[in-house]
């Protein structure tokens, strides 16, 4: 299972499609609400990450609210191992 941190570049690339907010200071503690990502956009973002990773993110009980939570989620479901 890849480390959550290794997936940060992938997440940043995906996020860039959905927000104009600067992403250079992005860290695990960054809240999506602070970078103009609302719940609708989050749903779309997760869908796009599924596409990029070739996986399915099971219905999560809680919508991730921070970058760290998303990284953990996709690390958990990613079929690829970190090189």
């Amino acid at each position: 299972m890849p480390e959550a941190q290794d997936l940060m570049p992938l997440l940043k690339e995906a996020l860039a499609k959905y927000t104009d907010a600067p992403l250079d200071q992005l860290g695990p503690e960054t809240r999506f609400a602070d970078i103009n990502i609302d719940s609708l956009t989050m749903a779309e973002l997760l869908f796009e990450l599924e596409d990029r990773l070739g996986t399915t993110l099971d219905n999560t009980e809680e919508i991730p609210s921070t970058v760290g939570e998303v990284l953990a989620l996709i690390a958990q479901h990613s079929p690829k191992s970190a090189s």
Binding site: K17, Y18, T19, D20, N36, I37, L40, T41, E44
Partner: peptide
């Protein structure tokens, strides 16, 4: 419109 708006 800004990129953020284009999502929806």
């Amino acid at each position: 419109l800004g990129k953020t708006a284009l999502t929806t």
